[in-house]
Write a protein that binds this DNA or RNA. Structure first.
Lengths: 270, 270
DNA sequence: CGGGGTATAACCCTAAGGGGGTATTTTGGC
DNA sequence: GCCAAAATACCCCCTTAGGGTTATACCCCG
């Protein structure tokens, strides 16, 4: 199905991207699908710290997007490793799940209650920035039906499309701007405030920071490297915050914190 | 509030248990409450392998019985360590949670998604057998409001009531009988069959057996002692069955198996 | 100035979970 | 009845989570 890139290039002249029109997203999808064997595609736009907006989506299997509006957009995205690219304003480019996922990502509750149920087995995301703090994520993936992860060859091919996709994405969405002058509180701070007002639990800044890392699937070692502290210290913070919350596992942390995260997000209309 | 047992005995002559009448269960409750500081009480009857029936319940806090009808009776009871006393037809008597709970009980999903939410912090259960395969469980407990677990002294006092409670329970419910001539398939077998028909997953008998032990909170060591095999072997069965199910933790096993367990139970009207 | 909360760091341990591997017994099919 | 495959049983290796304990240094507040 997928042709060598050279062959595609010949056709590129005939592929017309109607910027600023309805059909643009669909033509992006058709363009990618011409070169890559993919089962599903999603275009998301993140603006400042607002909720993501779904711009376009296609999937051969229903499950892939089943919880996209209900769970992902409403708050689960905060734990998505790809969302982190937007937060950190990582360089534009193409990213695979294995590149961005923390070391213990597959043991998170986000993974088992959300990601696994999408049946997606592999995912690549094209990241572009039409303007500061506005990210366009073009996600393409494989699901359990085909079952195959992307090969190195496919990744290389996907990478070749990246400059073109980035250019036309940034052109098409250039009019989008983020007015993030309000809500300057950092994420751990907002998290702490909500946690205290909602559940009456008062974490220290460090404990809140560690909690968020844990929820996203970082191991103690991974957190220690990020925060430049010892692994032992991370374990202490983990213990302390678990004790304050009256829980004893990452899974319980998730079921306790998700409602709090949702409330942080709720006031941010996209 | 609780008086020494001797004092209670003086009143016992005045306490009339109206066998085979509506008020019997309530008088049982009042009797126990006279001697023991308890926050909640539940009387359950297990008949053969049918779903338990709730005969009576009292609680100072709503949460204690919140999920009793919806979750416990409909299937969660299969993972209850006290239910296991009925299955194994353990001797009549009084049992505490710490006596019957497997070593890793507090790390099970049953504990964190059901038991913890009842806010019960300690529980004692009087077990009586009105007739073969018919168990009466009189459960008395403390919740988070009082917060205190039962002391050794209280347990001793509770134990003194046991002969009386057993005698009147077995008298009162003597007319109950179990017709368990049907459904002679063992639990692991029923579990295996359902698993194959529902999810298309074919576990070996040993794997199914281990899965059920894991769900109930047994550690690998505990399972190895029960099955008289090596701990290493248990770990291998665990690995194999996790792989067959495409999962990687006890929590996922729970969320995958609960629907299956519910279907096993559904056909057994109490 | 002293004490409580916080942050840092180290040690101990058990248990889960995943990666190899091998040997024996049971079972099903020809 | 024999052979292969499956099931059962056991072993080694490893990382990580989670819990317990102790000991520092710091900093703010009364």
């Amino acid at each position: 199905m997928a042709k060598p890139l050279q062959a595609g290039m010949e056709h590129l002249g005939q592929m017309i991207f109607h910027l600023h029109t309805q059909g643009f997203e669909e033509s992006i999808f058709q363009f990618v699908r011409y070169f890559l064997d993919i089962d599903n595609e999603t275009i998301l736009i993140y603006t400042g710290n607002k909720r993501p907006r779904i711009i376009h989506r296609r999937a051969t299997v229903m499950q892939v997007h089943e919880r996209l509006e209900s769970d992902y957009v409403l708050g689960a995205y905060l734990l998505d490793p790809f969302y982190n690219l937007h937060v950190e304003q990582a360089p534009a480019g193409i990213y695979t799940l294995s590149q961005v996922a923390p070391d213990q990502f597959k043991r998170t509750e986000y993974f088992s209650t959300y990601y696994r149920r999408t049946t997606v087995v592999d995912e690549m995301v094209y990241v572009a920035y039409p303007s500061p703090h506005v990210s366009v994520h073009l996600s393409v993936g494989r699901d359990a039906a085909s079952g195959q992860r992307f090969s190195k060859r496919e990744l290389a091919r996907a990478r070749e499309l990246e400059p073109v996709l980035r250019a036309i994405s940034e052109l098409h969405w250039a009019n989008l701007h983020s007015n993030d002058n309000n809500d300057k509180t950092s994420e751990p701070d907002a998290f702490r405030e909500r946690l205290e007002s909602e559940l009456g639990i008062c974490l220290t800044p460090r404990q809140a920071q560690v909690a968020l890392f844990i929820l996203r699937g970082h191991s103690s070692v991974s957190i220690s490297l990020r925060l430049k502290i010892s692994e032992q210290t991370v374990k202490v913070f983990r213990k302390q915050l678990y004790r304050k919350c009256g829980i004893s596992s990452q899974a319980e942390l998730f079921s306790m914190m998700m409602p709090v995260l949702l409330k942080i997000v709720a006031q941010r209309t996209p």
